[in-house]
Each structure stands twice: as structure tokens, then as C-alpha cells.
Design a protein around this nucleic acid. Sequence first.
RNA 1: GGGGCUGUAGCUCAGGGGGAGAGCGCUUGACUCACAUUCAAGAGGUCCAGGGUUCAAAUCCCUGCAGCCCCACCA
Length: 891
Amino acid sequence: MEKNLSKTYDPKQFEKRLYEEWEKSGAFQGKRDKSKTPFTIVMPPPNITGQLHMGHALDHTLQDVLTRWKRMQGFDTLWLPGTDHASIATEVKVADKIREEEGKTKEELGREEFLKRAWEWKETYGGRITEQCRKLGDSCDWSRERFTMDEGCNRAVVEFFVRLYEKNLIYRGNRIINWCPSCGTSLSDAEVEHDDKNSKYYYIRYPGEDGSEGIVVATSRPETMFGDVAIAVNPEDSRYRDMIGKKVLLPLIGKAIPILADPYPDPEKGTGAVKITPAHDPNDFEVGLRHNLPQPSCINEDATMNELAGKYAGMDRYECRKAWVADLEAAGYLVKVEDMVIPVGECYRCKDVVEPMLSEQWFVRMEELAKPAIEAAKSGELTHVPERFEKIYLHWLEEIRDWCISRQLWWGHRIPAYYCDDCGEIMVLREAPKTCAKCGSGNIRQDEDVLDTWFSSALWPFSTMGWPEQTPDLEHYFPTDVLVTGYDIIFFWVVRMVFSSLAMTGKVPFHHVYVHGLVRDAEGRKMSKSLGNGIDPLEIIDQYGADALRFMLATGISPGNDLRFKMDRLESCRNFANKLWNASRFVIMNLLDEKGDFFPMADAAEGIEKLVLKDEDKWILTRLNQAVSEITNKMEKYELALAGQRVHDLIWNEYCDWYIELVKARLYGEDEDDKLVARFVLVKVLKDMLALLHPFMPFITEEIWGYLPGDGGMLIVAPWPVYDEALNFPAESDRMALIMETIRSIRNIRAEAEAAPSKKLRAVILSTGDALKAIKAGESYLKNLANLSEVRFIEDKGQIQEEIMSAVVHGAEIFIPLDDLVDYQAEYQRLEKEKTRLEAERARLSAKLENQEFIKKAPEAVVAAEREKFEKAGAMLEKIEERLSFVAKKI
RNA sequence: GGGGCUGUAGCUCAGGGGGAGAGCGCUUGACUCACAUUCAAGAGGUCCAGGGUUCAAAUCCCUGCAGCCCCACCA
């Protein structure tokens, strides 16, 4: 094997190999180690319907960052993966596929054969998704992989259903539900999306039975009139008070319906009179119950009209609307039509307009279940990050209505309810009964319907760990620590997991909900198939590597907010990987002798205190130390983006830009002992930085690690760095900071004077005391990094002769003779500008310091800091003024 | 109808009670022996507007304007 990294950073060379090694090592597996604190995340199971998209990539990256970080901190981590059967979504896809390939409908194929195809689909696509997770670098425990329809999950679903039924929390009832005509199934409220649509209000006259004018009613859905059973008016409404109890006729149909008084109609809305259609409107349904009205349906499940619609029977609901309105108009019953924007319910899967329909379905009684879930959030047992999502969570729970859980589909968990065909007995049981419990008949039939896909997802945090058995996993890893998910799924999933878990286990399923936003395209639009603006994470990985993608996603977000996917950011992340790669290559190069063996290294275990560290060593160690505490702190607050950015800055701006440059002269120098020290620090800091970066960029860090001295893979042996007081050198650190500032000033002067970078300059530095000592100690750095031929130190301005360009840093003044290169006029203007800036700053600070309120009330440290700034500005100003008068004489 | 988010450099966005940050872009210069996927130097901002709290507000509170999102039985 090569002793050093290849010349160019090419993630394809190692990402796949490393993942295979990791997986084989077993390091991703939860060890159920009782001596360690567990840290658990369950993966929101991706649907088996398709491929991983950018949203998954974000979701998984965040989970993996947390998991890897905690693993490095010594927790017994478990990230439990799996996939979701996605009942309705998969059923639609599989049916489409069958129609395309075999030209058959699912009904023609039959339930059994259809399910066979669905399972085949699951095998193909479920497997593909887990492969994609591997490409991302997900460090999840594949030995515990689950599927919402595997044996264990099935058992949990049945158990859950039966227990709720036994507690009277599940019931079967004839109620108004949301019906999707395309999917041919009922939907829960959460599965209906509302969209404002341009529509019309039709004002229609219902003539009086007695030949009177009758009453005008406004409706947006005239086609439901065939199911009208009454007209309701508010008893307070004086316009209609006299008509209560009378009857009107359904226009053109001729059926007489009563006008009745009910508090539901709002006199302010429409005409104040409402047509009552109990079978097609939830409000009307309630009114109907109050007045004991019949509930005739006029629309079929496929959204065509039924026989009640007379000559319109068989027509599509909208066709019928058109024809019906035209006929009403011709007959003079249409009073007027108004344009109106009306919110329309649509199926979240197929976007077809949902029809409210009366139907016999299974429901979960929510009120009692919601209470503990509300309490868990209020008591702080369950927290949301960021906090504001708690409001959304609570609002939903407080407004919650009963949950319709039965679906007229085949792909899913079949409802464990059995009906006796002889006596009509309903049995809800864990096992299919052979005979009826009541009459003993053998004519038993299981409910045809399956459960809402979210019914099984709701159990995911504990069904995957073996519930209802009290398994060792459940005991050790449950409740989980954090759930990572997008805000779009709080209602569908988070809320339901919480109340299900509280009801079944008595515990919250997780302590924290870490909510992230959506990945949008560069223009801020939602990525969607219909827009065709989706970006495939796998293509990105192929081009830029998984690390670049992960780093971009992890550092590009702020909690709870959406993220725009911009290619230039991705490139900059790839460049960062490249930078780290090359810096590491440089380090390794300097660790190897001619034979390709590592030079002897001072060992950290021996005690770094014994090494003779130079100031720049102490500076970088101090910076590292500081970064370690800041980064850990950010991670603990779930501020992953800030933590990642901080690692980035440490590596690029401090280690690469400064430390490596500072240390080069020593590496190329003669002092062999000092070289050992330099190499040691170089490696020590690099290793710690790799550790800090590893949760974000696992592949490149592991790959580099393998080339560094030491045994064992990073995943196995690298601990999360901790703050080390022994490696904190504030005084030396300050000295180095002064030298860097001086170097920057000299570079600045050079650029201002347009002196060629290759031209060596002479510098004269005026300074005294500690500052002089510090800069003197850094003379060689000044020469190297500012390209100076000579540095002269003076303590008295009198010694300055021809030097003209100057800069002032804290504690020193720098003069550079530039021979004839300098434009005095420009120099004068530059100094003037600097003077103005300093004066303004001094004035600001002086005003502040003269303010007695400030002195009295502000914290002492703040006052002291401001005073120091004031004095510093004053001293600099003084020097600038001297320079100004000097330059003025030359003009 | 209810609730929420956002408004900061040309662009995309961080940050957040003690006078402003990144990436990209832009300007100038350099193929400097790890890296041109790089290095160095720079320009560029009334931190949406108004009011309040405070010794101190871009930051906290209120109002307004602008944009986005979610919820809502939608006659």
C-alpha cells in the first residue's frame, strides 16, 4: 500500500470500501452494553415506494452526525433502520405497474395475486433504499433492520388494535369520512390537503310546497342536492321565522323537504338558509342527527352519481353539476351565480378532490389518548427543537378529532375484526377465531379492510424493539433519545407515536424531537416529481462524494428552517474536503523518512508537557482546545450546523492557513529534536480535528486516519476530543496573535503599495516592552510569511529616516521603506482614512465611558473591555497623527 | 377564520443586548516546494419601517409593510 494519500482527492476510491469495512466490523451494532449509557435513534422508515431523495439525505445526515458523535463519546449507540410499507402509496404504484405491464386492474388480478406482486415490489425497492443509505454513510445497525409489515410489527399492530378496542378506544361507526374516489378508499383528516380553488356559489330557489316563493339557498356543490333532506335556518333569523315548519320542493325533482330551525346556519353567510345533505357534509350530518333525518347518498364511491340523481345517474359528479345547473337555469330556479374562492380538500397522494361521504369505518377515539400526549410536552418530558414546534404539536392534539383508521385497500395490515355471518357478532381478536363466540357458527369472515399506514408507524419506536414482549432491547434502548424528522410529518407521525407509546408502554417514545425543514431547489421551490426539479442525492454523491453532500446539508441548515440546495455551496464543501486531503498529505509527507517509515514520534501518552513547545505549537493547541469546547457545546444544543462550521474554520483558517505555514520552516530546518516536536503537534492536532469532523464527514476522515501513525480504524478507536487544561496557553497564544496581526499588516502595506509579492522588503518595527519581546521572538515568522529580507527593531522614532509606509498594531508600529515605490499622496489619504475611523471609534467609546449610567449598571468586565479599547484607540491615533505630519512634509 | 416563519453584503444565508459574519460572486496580485478544488490583499451593509423596554437594541416587546408556510367541517 502507498504510504501517503493519493495526489488528488477522489472519494470514489474509498467510500464504498470503507463502508463495507465498517459494516463488517460490527461497530454500528448496538451492543446492549449495560455499563454504558445508551443513545438511541429510530430511523423514520423511508417508504418502499421509491428512491431516497434529498429530504432523506438531510434527515439521515443529521441522525448520523448525532449517532457517530455519541458513539465517539462512549455511548452505547443504536440507530435502528427500517422501511415502511406505505400502504396507499405503494398500492397505487403497484397497481400502476400491473396496469402498464399486464393491462389488468388490481380487481382483475385479485387480492392474493396482487399482494404477491406488492411483496415482490417490496423486495426490489426496499433493498434499493437500504443500499442508498449505505452510500450516504448511515452508521445504522443493519442487524436490527425492520419493516412495518414484518412478523414482529404485525404482531404489535394487532396487539395495539385489540388493546385499544378492549378499552373502548377503537370503535366502528357510520360517519362522514373523507373519500378519495381515485384511490377508492377513506382517508384520515391528516391525509387531506386543503387548497384554495376558484369556484362558484350557486343561488338556487327551492319553491314552496304551497306554491309560494319558497327559499333561496347558496351552495358550491349543487350536485349533492339529490341527497337533500331539509333546509335549515337559524331560529334567530327574522327573514325566515315564518317559514319554519313549512315545506319546500327540491326544484325539478319535486320532492318535499321541511324547513327546520337549527343553530347551525349563520345568518351572515350566503342567504342564511342552508340545504341539509347529511350523507355528504359533516355539518349537515350533525344537523341530520339532531333532527332525526334520513341520510340518503347520491354519489357513488367512484364519484359518479347514483340512481337518486335520476337522469343524471352514472354521470361524473362534475359533469352532473354542469348539466344540473344548466337545467335549473333553463327552468328558472337558478337565481344567480357568484365567483368564489373555496378551499377544496384533496387526497395527499393522488390530489383528486376528496368527497365527504357517509361510510362505515373504524375509528380511534382520540380525546382520552391525546391528554397524556399533551401533558408530556407541557411537563417537559418531551421537548421540541426548536421549541416553536411544540406549539404546532399541541395545537394539533388539542383540536384533534377521531382518527379514521380503516382503508379500503389490500396492501397493509388487515383489520383484526371478524364478523359472524349468521348472528352478526363482531369479534376483535389476536387470532382468527374458528367459530363465532356468540352463536357458535363457523361462518366467520375477517374484515376486508386494512389499516391506515400510520397506524403501524405510530408503534415504530417500540414495535421495532420487540414490543409487546419486554425484550432486552426494549429494556435497554427504550425510550429512545431523539427523533429526527421534518416538520411536514409532525401530525402524521410524531403526534401518533407519542400517544400510542404513552398508551401502550406508559413512556414517551423519545425525549427530544429534532425538527428540520425541507430541502428546496435553488429557486426555493419544493422539490417534486411533477416539477421535475428534484436533485438525486446519489448523482451528487457520485460527482462530489458523500462527505461533501453531508457537510453541505449539515452545515447549510438552521434549526427548523428550509434549505436551498445550491450547487456552489456543494462545491465549496467538496473544496473543503480537498483542502483537508491535501493538508493531510502534507503532514504525512513530513512524517515519513526516505524508506517510507514513520519517523520516531513523541508519544502523547508520554506527556506532552515534556516536549519543548514553540509559541505556534502552543497557539494551535490552545485554539484546538477552544474549538473542542465550543463544538461540543453546539452539538449538545443540537446546533449541528454551527458545530460543523466551527470545525471547518479550525481546519482551514487556523490549521492550514496559519499553523502549517508557521511550522514549515522548522520542518525544513536542521534542528532534529525540534522537528519531532513539530511533527508531533502537527499530527496531534490533525487527529483531533479529524475526530471533530468525523460525524460530518466520516469517509474522508477515516481514510486519512488510516495513513496516520497509530493502530485501529477511526470508527473504532477515535474518541471525541475533550478540553485539556494542560494544553491551554493563553499568554503564548496572545503573542502569536500579535505576530499574525503584524504579518497581516505588512502584507497589507505591500498590497497597498503594489509591491511585487516576490520583492523582499525591509521592515522597521518600533516597539517596547512585552510587545517588542513577542515580536522579536517571532522574527523568523515575519521574514517567512511576510517575505522580508531584514527586520530592524527600534525603540525610538528618532531612528527612522526614510521609511514611509506604516501600520499600527497593538503595541507596535511598523515602517517599511519602499524606496520610490510609494505615492505619498495616497499614503496620506490612507492615513487620513484610518485616522477618521479611529477618531469615530474613540468618540463613541468616550461617550459611553462618560455615561455614569453605563459605568454604574453595565457589568464590570464590559466596562473594563470598553476602557481598554478606548485606550488602545487613543494610542494608535497618536501614532497615526505623527505619521501624518511626517508624510505631509514629504508632499 | 386561527397559528407560525422570514426580512442582515450583489446572491444564498448564519449569528444575535455591549456598533456586523460565512460561502459564492466581484476587484487586485501570485502556478510560493500539500492544495489554482489554491494563496494573499481588498471593495461592499441605516442588520425592512416606526414606536417601546434598557446605561446600551441589528438583537427583546408592540405596530406596520413585504414574502412564505401550516391549520380550519369548505352551506
